[in-house]
Design a protein around this nucleic acid. Structure first.
Lengths: 216, 216, 216, 216
DNA sequence: GATGAATGAGCCTTCATTCAT
DNA sequence: GATGAATGAAGGCTCATTCAT
């Protein structure tokens, strides 16, 4: 993907079908970030990808489809990220929660373009059922998993509180940080964003987190 | 305003300049909610308002301006809401914070159309400096005021923690609830949303809040 | 007419029908000069006249009619000018010709706005039969009269040449000067324009004209 | 160009960029002649060219630009015409002047559509600085060159008179003939127009011209 | 596969005209 | 008479989509 993420480079004359699609999707993410959803055009995408105008409709049947697959791409990427983070986190609920929280700020996902693209899709999702599936609370699996981890932490850690609400609140803080960083004129840093999330985690689970992260 | 907010009713043949503008702005909010930012057209607005589409450009100079003024209208309305809520809340920081949190769920603001319109603007704000002013963390005054209240509560309540981060986290939970309710296929209720916010407040300020709200 | 030619002054509450019409026509001339035919709007006319938008269609039934009457107004004014000049010129053909030539540069007609309005109508006349009558060689009477005077001068002055062509050439030089002064970025002066016309007259009738005008 | 100047013929499915532009410009000239500047629309141009109206904005970015390039096209064509005529005329000033005068009536330039298009632009030039450059006395080079030739003829031919004024008068007679033929209801012929110009030339330079043209 | 010219639907905008006050 | 809000037709422009090369 490193290769295809260099948008202006025309790339080899013939690229595999899959690689071309990724190249166009990455370009779409850039365009969504730069121009917003409403003003993104296929010409922009083609220009950003360094490809011809007609090629977009060749690989994707329509603009609608290109955007849907771009969202699916982001969604898959996101799922892979937290799935992998969980897999690496062992069985301790606190570690698992920390892994989830940190995954949302991992360098691969947490790029200006990707954040902006997510926010662009959120803005449109309300009136497009097709997007809601992928956007709505990002995805149900994630929400369920996060809630289960919170429930385990509550049970094992001697906390009280509603796991669903706590889990939701933590998710919303993270999503809100993403949006802040995209929308604000003078945004705070990624680190401050992560600290804000940990600050919330520390409030819910003070014996396991402080604002710097997981306690040893 | 109740009268003019009935979109389909053409109303009297001639209305005062201000009333027509409000009528058109309310129609714009409806359209943004129904169709999203990218697909909202002036014809939609005119049809929703029960007026001719030429009138939109008569009262506002362009679509761009209509949208900008719609956002300003929402922004003013929001500011008035929390300003008034604070004014009614007395001097106790906990009461003030509760007033702010509840104001975000007040019946006047917390309507499906308004929430959806806000989310639509958030999605576009990233690429439109004009919108950022009004959207970015909704407005700086609000953020500062909320932070000051949190700081006062921390100081007077014997809490420790970073007022800026706590204040921000509470704001993001509220904004996130708004977005959830707009985007989700099967959203939770307004009450559950408010409970989620109070749940977060209770985590930060357990001696003053529980998930049902302010402690007596 | 001095009064009504102050466009921005709203004027008395009620003006005679005729005076209002003249006021609007004068405003139309201004607008044609400033914006050109293609971009002249009734709003411009109303604003320039300091009157309300709807009044224009009250006094004239349509834009088309307003423009037609504006051209008629200019045309009548022009005819009056040369008719009067001829009446004052006596019976000598050379004096009569000089009077005609000078009439085209008389202060009342030769104003930037009027020249520009004429040129604007010329540009449109080709595709509007309605205008051709008034525009085409300004008017046939004039052309015939001028030609007759040239013929008389040729006969009495011992010249040879085709009176129709000479007369036409003199008319075209004058019209051309008008257009030059309207179109050129750095136009020459009215005096230079008149001298050019006299220069042409001197070429055709060297014993009666030089470039300063009629010889004593 | 002969092929593309048949407006109604769609021609080959794909044409070179330059050829399509010329085709559209030729169509624009037709439309200006038929409908006048104020009523010329892009749809008219597209229909006349037998192409879709979207194509106009594809090759030219806007109507404004299409018109500007049409004027530039006419202007270049005109310049080429007189430049070539001069190049073929040798070094004799009288021959050169005759070449210039005749070039304005050459079959390629002197078509009803082209004359009408020129007059349409003249009418609008006053309020459009962009057009003035190309329209104002058609172009400065031409005016200077014509004046120099007149000056040479005066000096070598034993005439007296102001070269600038004589040159200008000759130019204005020609331009005026063009306008007469466009505007008049019952216009005279091309030959009569040329004779009028020669009549003027004969008046200024009687030993070199008569109304039939250059003396042997 | 790839290109870019060509198409046409849809939208924003302007503006002449109407009409209630 | 006078005003200015309201209407709706018409035109310029954008852009997703198609298709010949």
């Amino acid at each position: 993907m490193d290769v295809v993420s260099q948008p202006a480079a025309p790339g080899p004359r013939k690229l595999s079908r899959a690689a071309r699609r990724v190249q166009l999707i990455e370009a779409t993410i850039e365009v969504l970030a730069e121009r917003g959803y409403a003003r993104a055009t296929l010409s922009d995408v083609a220009k950003t990808a360094g490809l011809s105008h007609g090629l977009v409709n060749f690989h994707f049947q329509s603009k609608e489809l290109l955007l849907a697959e771009t969202l699916a791409y982001l969604s898959d990427e996101y799922r892979e990220s937290w799935t992998q983070a969980l897999a690496d986190a062992g069985t301790d609920p606190a570690r698992q929660l920390d892994a989830l929280l940190r995954a949302d700020f991992s360098p691969q996902l947490f790029t200006p373009s990707r954040l902006a693209a997510w926010v662009a899709f959120w803005g449109e999702a309300q009136s497009r059922p097709l997007y809601q599936e992928k956007c709505g609370a990002k995805d149900d699996d994630y929400a369920e998993r996060k809630q289960a981890i919170c429930a385990a932490l509550i049970a094992s850690g001697g906390y009280c509180g509603d796991a669903a609400r706590i889990s939701r609140a933590l998710r919303l803080v993270t999503e809100g940080v993403w949006m802040d960083l995209v929308i604000m004129e003078h945004p705070y840093s990624r680190e401050e964003g992560l600290a804000t999330v940990h600050c919330a985690a520390a409030a819910f689970f003070p014996r396991h987190f402080n604002e710097h992260g997981l306690l040893a």
